[in-house]
Amino acid sequence: MSEANTKKPSRRDFNRGLMRGAGLLAIVGVTAGMGRRMRKDNTVWQLDPDKCVQCGRCATECVLNPSAVKCVHAYDICGYCDLCAGYHQPSAKVTDTAAENQLCPTAAIKRTYIEDPYYEYAIEESLCVGCGKCVKGCGAFGNGSLFLQVRHDRCVNCNDCSIARACPANAFRRVSAEQPYILKGQSGEARA
């Protein structure tokens, strides 16, 4: 910085100052341009259950292992059936909780008897890997009360969501962190 010590600014210093001004102007310009396109709330990733085709990639593409995508249950749409297409293997001959009759590869769905002939199905999130097998079964033969969602207590909110990139149904999008779920059933009707 020997030039800076001299009283009279050199041509070089002047040029630097000029370029600094230009740089500042560029930064201010970008910021001002962004100002209109800015949002105060943060964005998070979510998948639209209406677009989801249960391809299974949520289970394999997430940077987390197990995935931050889990199955959730809209109980108010559920038929509480004894034979549940989301719970039982299509080949199941008996509607019980035997492992060979369960569709879920990690036995993450808990089946509870409520009253004749109703059974309640609840997702054990710590076991769910987000493969969507139950969602597919429930959507194909049931009321469609099971669906996949990004769980935000787990999601690390990557800038470039690796599931979103690999989703063949284009079901992922950024949503406001204040309304981070796209739900089905009554809780979902509130959003629409």
Partner: peptide, 22 residues
Amino acid sequence: RFPRPEFDSGHVLPKITTPGAR
């Protein structure tokens, strides 16, 4: 496809949990 059940035992439907984002 299946009618929603009407419980005699007064069973209350659980709510969907929505853990918040950061």
